[in-house]
């Protein structure tokens, strides 16, 4: 299991719960800070001392108080850590359950786990740590769908062009060739196949025929 973990959390009761979990898991070095700037300092010092932290568990929202901070929230801290110490694995532990935020942090910023504070928060945190130790990522079940393709609502111009070609009866191969001729990106067969599968999920269609029918019904084509 991990040897050195840093907790960034400004609510003491929550920190206690996390510390209790980490102690239970037998993690020897647990440090905890209440400010994002302090977290960054600890990480830097540990790095200089050549005993770096392996995992950072951080909240996303920090109350502002009399101490002015350069890093005022968890996301800023996460981005700073990602830039300075990419080897440190990060678990966001937050009450926040907005899908797009989760999606952004996981897919764009690249955190290893997103755990929602809640009824089963501590248990999920344990699962997250275990997943990370195995080299996997983890997202709490109540926000897991954020990463699901079905969550994507956006039909792009590319998708519409794709659907229009499909409706004309062209095969995926023919579409790929057509797109290539028209210099539409991406035009590889695999990309087109992937995209059609995604559209099937988005439009809840079992096959291409249903996909076209729904597209027609929606007025997309």
């Amino acid at each position: 299991m991990f040897q050195k973990i840093l907790i960034a959390e400004d609510l003491h009761s929550i920190t206690e719960g996390v510390q209790y979990l980490l102690n239970t898991l037998g993690i020897p070095q647990i440090q905890h800070v209440q400010y994002c700037d302090d977290a960054m300092l600890r990480l830097k010092k540990a790095h200089m001392d050549a005993v770096p932290f392996e995992v950072l568990i951080t909240d996303l929202s920090f109350k502002t108080d009399h101490r002015s901070q350069q890093l005022t929230d968890g996301e800023a801290l996460i981005r700073a850590v990602k830039a300075a110490f990419p080897e440190v694995q990060i678990i966001a532990y937050s009450i926040e359950d907005r899908n797009q935020r989760v999606k952004r942090l996981v897919q764009e910023v690249g955190i290893q786990a997103y755990v929602c504070k809640g009824r089963h928060g501590i248990q999920e945190l344990q699962t997250a740590l275990e997943s990370l130790w195995r080299g996997e990522t983890y997202v709490s079940p109540q926000v897991a769908h954020a990463l699901h393709p079905q969550n994507d609502l956006n039909i792009e111009d590319f998708d519409i062009a794709l659907l229009a070609h499909l409706a004309q009866g062209l095969s995926q191969t023919e579409i790929s060739r057509e797109f290539k001729a028209k210099n539409i990106q991406p035009h590889s067969l695999s990309a087109i196949e992937k995209r059609i599968n995604k559209l099937k999920i988005m439009l809840k269609s079992a096959n291409a025929v249903q996909l076209i029918a729904v597209s027609k019904d929606l007025g997309l084509i």
Partner: peptide
């Protein structure tokens, strides 16, 4: 429900 949006991006 099938819910889509176009042009949002």
């Amino acid at each position: 429900l099938i819910l889509v949006s176009t042009g949002m991006t």
